[in-house]
């Protein structure tokens, strides 16, 4: 029997006395592809941080592959779980391939550094995300969308069985949004990578993800197929817009 890739039980997180997540329970099996949706401030990014173990829960339990995340050291978590942040700041000039190579840090020997296998993984990740034309460029001079793809390539190079993405398409134009989604689907279906992505675009989420998890005010209020989760009633209730607007955008 395989253990769930991600398992949350009654997770509550508070910041300055205000609840961010309330009693969230969630199971993600290995190989699943899950979109985390909900309005701004629903707790989606917080949920990712709790899963990644960089933020402690005030109550409840978080396990990765059956092991409590709080008992794992950071390297063990990083080998199991790659996280694609929305943005990051680089204090020094770095080339695209140097940024992507940081994805190999969890696999590196503390003293010897990168080995040939690491360099091969970096090259493969760059190809997979289609960044060959950006080699040698200063990552700080790229467009927001290009930088987002560089961070995605970094996570691919990390080669973890589970990938968490925080709005991976927010700065991308339409073509690149679709390409990024296709890449994610490919990583999931071909490589068996477990995917959890925070998405704002309900149309993209329903089109590319078989399972949606809906958060609202820190509570898990929907979990299932797009048709099950994005009912007219819920869209009006949670997002505060007419369902027709979502349907118009291609969702539901």
């Amino acid at each position: 029997m395989t253990r769930p890739a991600i398992w949350l039980d009654g997770v509550t997180v508070e910041a300055r006395g205000r609840p961010i997540l309330r009693d969230v329970s969630l199971t993600v099996e290995p190989g699943e592809r899950v979109a985390l949706i909900g309005p701004n401030g629903a707790g989606k990014s917080t949920l990712l941080r709790v899963v990644a173990g960089v933020l402690g829960a005030n109550a409840g339990r978080v396990e990765l592959g059956g092991v409590p995340v709080t008992s794992m050291d950071r390297t063990a978590v990083a080998r199991r779980l790659a996280v694609v942040p929305q943005q990051t700041a680089l204090p020094f000039s770095m080339r695209v391939e140097e940024v992507v190579a940081l994805g190999r840090l969890p696999h590196e020997d503390a003293l010897r550094g990168a080995r040939p296998a690491d360099r091969a993984a970096v090259a493969a990740a760059i190809d997979r995300v289609g960044l060959g034309h950006l080699l040698g460029r200063d990552a700080r001079e790229l467009s927001l969308g290009e930088r987002q793809l560089v961070l995605l390539a970094l996570a691919v190079a990390q080669a973890a069985p589970t990938l968490l993405l925080d709005e991976p398409t927010v700065h991308l134009d339409l073509r690149h949004q679709v390409e990024a989604m296709e890449l994610m689907r490919d990583l999931n279906e071909r490589d068996g990578t477990t995917l959890v992505a925070v998405l704002h675009d309900l149309a993209l989420a329903s089109h590319f993800f078989p399972r949606l998890v809906l958060l609202d005010h820190g509570r898990l209020v929907g979990d299932g197929t797009p048709a099950e989760v994005l009912t007219d009633e819920r869209i009006g209730e949670v997002f505060g817009v007419a369902p027709a607007l979502v349907r118009l955008a291609g969702g539901g």
């Binding site: 390297t75 978590v77 990083a78 990051t88 680089l90 940081l102 994805g103």
Partner: peptide, 18 residues
Amino acid sequence: RTLNGLLLGEQAAAHLGV
């Protein structure tokens, strides 16, 4: 390894095993 991870920021470094 720590210093390399921190190139991306403290949060990202934590995600990379630092």
